[in-house]
Design a protein around this nucleic acid. Structure first.
Lengths: 152, 152
DNA sequence: AATTGATTTGCAGCGGACTTGCTTTTGGAA
DNA sequence: TTCCAAAAGCAAGTCCGCTGCAAATCAATT
């Protein structure tokens, strides 16, 4: 796996204070580990595994179990979005305020380079699929896989 | 998780002999466990986890490790297609002869009911995504999630 | 039909991702 | 400052999946 090169997220990088305020607003504590994790996510606007977050943290800063628990909290609060690239490790990305974070990626199957993708599955077709099958609250997970320019 | 109800696959159910012939044709042995696994897959034309296959087998018929190994073999031969519903367990489905097995599912997040979906991500858009980013051999994974009629 | 040898199986142990119970620490409100 | 609910650290445990090795087995050959 080579160093990640990514397209930037479309929404502006959030201030750390804005992020901690969102936490505080929900009556959660701003602890050292949580601030550190948010700062790492802020600095890497790309999907990161919990282990990658741990590695990016000043060592000894925080336990891996705490990262797992923090990600659950942030996910439940909608501050972070979970992605699955099919390699068995969940990845998390900061979500902009008021955004739902729904988007997709193009992932290189050789080097794991990740590109953010604007395109999405057509809403009308998804709605038709839902009603045809009587399902409610239908969403989708969609990721693209291929070989990046450097790996061809 | 209630009993699975599914739409039938569009391609006709294959004969077990046709399946074993495909194995034999690639100079693999037709062993008891392999025949039993193929028979289970044939009877359940829906994505099954390895543990579900084991449970469907007459008990003691075969070891879980053998199922893992057989699925790898069948996947490599293109006789089986791997799906990922995001719950941490891979699922496998028989693929028709000459088919690539590419299709998608609508999964109930409450009871895990699975419906096969005909629709697919527009090819032209996928091609555009590939060329715009310089990627080759681009495919996608796409699954839909929602609440099924019974669970609403 | 018996022989034989490479393939396959069963078993058991291992690794990685993720979770959880419990004790200690800590943020932040009173 | 005091105090306590919330959070962190640690360690053990769960679940999925993989692998090394000895024993079993398919199927080719005699």
């Amino acid at each position: 796996m080579k160093p990640h090169a990514h397209k930037q997220h479309s929404h502006p990088r959030q201030e750390l204070s804005a992020l901690t305020n969102r936490l505080r607003g929900q009556s959660h504590k701003i602890t050292g580990p949580r601030a550190a994790i948010l700062e790492i996510l802020r600095q890497h606007p790309h999907p990161l595994t919990n282990k990658e977050v741990l590695a990016a943290l000043p060592k000894g800063e925080c336990d891996l179990a705490t990262i797992y628990r923090s990600m659950h909290l942030l996910e439940k609060m909608g501050m972070v979005k979970r992605f699955d690239f099919g390699d068995g490790a969940a990845r998390f990305e900061l979500v902009g305020e008021g955004d739902d974070g729904h988007h997709h990626h193009l992932v290189c199957t050789r080097c794991s380079e990740v590109v953010e993708i604007e395109e999405c599955f057509p809403t009308e077709v998804e709605k038709r699929i839902a009603t045809e099958n009587g399902f409610k609250a239908v969403t989708h997970k969609l990721e693209f896989f291929g070989i990046c320019p450097d790996c061809q």
